[in-house]
Amino acid sequence: MGAIYRREMGSFFTSGLGYVFLTVFYAFSGYFFYTKVIESGISDTSPMFASMFIMFIFLIPVLTMRLLSEEKKNRTDQGLLTAPVNLWEIVMGKYLAAFTLFLIAECIVFVYALLLRYLGSVVWTSLIGNFAAMLFLGAAFIAIGLFVSSLTENQMSAAVVSFVVMIVFYLFDETLLLRVSNDRIREILSALSFRTRYYEFTKGVFSLSSIIFFLSTAFLFNFFTVKVLEKRRWS
């Protein structure tokens, strides 16, 4: 696992993808920080995080698109799958590499927090809550992106498909939930809403069920990815 993780991390920076990801993210989050926090004079960082959520929907597919699709296309998967490692090590190595980059990007908020502290006061509960929310959401979304990447040989289609999947999850509340008239069904569906759970965190509420929800989504999609790799051998 370590070897794959290190290779992926290296590849993010030799291919330039990592720089692009970080630059775009830092640029936009800086912009959001300036407009939503500093300019508006509110020390609550929640509006900034809400915008960052949308940024990640665009950027996570970029992070995950080539993780497995490129391996298949360049036939380097033959090297991985014939090495004495199991599929979980391969998937987790790649997953954690993408997650690390995501984490590096997200940690920029602490720089903003320091700036904010210099200018005024920081609402730490809101900041930590939002940070954790973003972390769990990212964990789930990266697993989804990795799964989509395992389905195709074309990194562009992997990016587009995972973007669409994430948008669907994001708009889940407006598009589907509001239109369900049956209360029982709506109740069940709302338990699956990413956004409801996400906003719960942003208010500083750490609910165990939400943590489990995000982590199990991440686990489930990584499990699917392993199954896709396994199935390919049997086709």
Binding site: A3, R6, T14, N74, T76, Q78, G79, T82
Partner: peptide, 22 residues
């Protein structure tokens, strides 16, 4: 394999080290 499983963006050294770890 028929097509060597090489990562084109790595140096030979980095690649062999990777396979060594793998």
């Amino acid at each position: 394999p028929e097509i060597p499983p090489l990562y084109m963006d790595m140096t030979v050294d980095a690649y062999l080290n990777f396979m060594f770890d793998l």
